[in-house]
Computed example of a mutant assay.
Amino acid sequence: MDKVKREDVELLLSTREALYALFHRALGCEPNDALIQVLTGEESRVLLSVVPESEAGRGAFRDYLTELDRLAERYAVSPSEVLSGMKDDYTALFFGPGRLEAPPSESYYRDSEGSFLSKHTLSVRREYARWGFGADEHAVEPDDTLVYELDFMRALAKKSLASWLDGELDTELHDAQVRFVNEHLLRWLGLYAGDMRACSRPGVYQQLVQMLWMFVNWDIRMLQSLPLDFDECASCAA
């Protein structure tokens, strides 16, 4: 990242925090009217517009916007019916009953036997503990479930932004995020996105996961290109 201004770094850091929060909310919570309004609103579209860099990425983004437009049009006509359908999709895709077409679990994709609890779960748990992050102890999902991994990255992204605004560069925090994305999210999200793409319930959740995969790839490139010297960044701000 050459000749970057400090306000540009602030914008990037705030954008990634907002996007991790958006994906965590959209993929980790039962849908409601407020979520539909957030997804179809202009702010989330603008946030996600930073992600596509290739022609294929721009095509995926256009597909996502088309799906949002369909959702907004149907919701304007029959909000209760659309919300009920989204709830059905959410339950079927993330909880069941029955075998999930695309289990949102790191261990499932990385363990040779398709386990939902493995050494990867323990690795994620150790990383959470290192940063004082606790997954919901009352939940039945393992720590390496998508919702927790996204919430963990949201929490670290928030810390990064606060660190930058305080004028101190926390390189340990930065390195932890690079490590978690490389060693965890990038190791399984592509496979998960592929299964979601082939699932029998096409719609906004399918498109959201494709956008998440693109975002995580954008995020690691962005993290690795951030200036790690505050004085150098300040000298480029003129």
Results as ranks from 00 to 15, higher is better:
residue 47 L to Q: 03
residue 114 G to P: 06
residue 51 V to S: 01
residue 236 C to T: 09
residue 136 D to Q: 05
residue 40 T to L: 05
residue 68 L to K: 05
residue 206 Q to M: 15
residue 117 L to N: 12
residue 222 M to T: 11
residue 123 S to Q: 10
residue 55 E to N: 08
residue 186 L to T: 09
residue 65 L to Q: 10
residue 16 R to L: 09
residue 63 D to E: 11
residue 87 K to L: 07
residue 214 M to L: 14
residue 142 P to L: 02
residue 71 L to S: 10
residue 212 L to D: 01
residue 152 F to A: 14
residue 195 D to I: 09
residue 162 A to C: 01
residue 226 L to T: 06
residue 199 C to P: 04
residue 127 E to S: 14
residue 49 S to C: 14
residue 235 S to I: 14
residue 17 E to C: 10
residue 153 M to T: 12
residue 203 G to S: 02
residue 54 S to K: 11
residue 215 F to I: 00
residue 211 M to A: 00
residue 108 Y to V: 03
residue 117 L to T: 13
residue 153 M to D: 02
residue 182 N to L: 12
residue 95 F to E: 14
residue 77 V to D: 12
residue 34 A to I: 03
residue 214 M to R: 06
residue 80 S to P: 01
residue 203 G to Y: 05
residue 210 Q to G: 03
residue 34 A to E: 04
residue 129 A to R: 13
residue 222 M to H: 02
residue 227 P to W: 06
residue 210 Q to A: 13
residue 57 G to M: 07
residue 128 Y to D: 07
residue 229 D to M: 08
residue 190 G to R: 15
residue 68 L to S: 03
residue 161 L to Y: 11
residue 46 V to Q: 10
residue 124 V to P: 02
residue 136 D to E: 05
residue 131 W to T: 05
residue 233 C to D: 08
residue 52 P to M: 03
residue 173 L to C: 15
residue 90 Y to G: 09
residue 192 Y to D: 00
residue 213 W to V: 07
residue 113 E to N: 13
residue 112 S to N: 09
residue 5 K to Y: 06
residue 87 K to W: 00
residue 101 E to A: 15
residue 153 M to E: 13
residue 140 V to M: 05
residue 146 L to V: 15
residue 43 E to M: 09
residue 150 L to E: 01
